[in-house]
Amino acid sequence: MIPTSHYVVVSLLLFTTGVIGVLTRRNVIIILMSIELILNAVNINLVAFSRLVGSVEGQAFAIFIITDAAAEAAVGLGIIIAFFRNRETVLADEMDILKW
């Protein structure tokens, strides 16, 4: 039986990686992917603690989070495509027009 703290450490590492990605990268698509990493880290935690308390509620919540990630990816990528069509760029710090 692997202790829950192991999973928490993995989750922390993934979370920090995701945060670094969001804060430092310029490419919006990679920023979105880093957000997926963060959500995944949360999921690992939820599932690990769901085993710890001996119920599957954490897994049910993980499914909600995956649903959320799907919605976020769909809308986010839609925005990226719309922006790319108008401005020919996917770099976050060039998206500074504030108004269309």
Partner: peptide, 22 residues
């Protein structure tokens, strides 16, 4: 972690769905 349903959901939704979109 004995969460086999989540294992499958992760692959179908994340890998087979969201990542294809990406």
């Amino acid at each position: 972690l004995n969460a086999e349903f989540l294992f499958v959901v992760q692959i179908i939704l994340y890998v087979g769905g969201i990542m294809v979109l990406f």
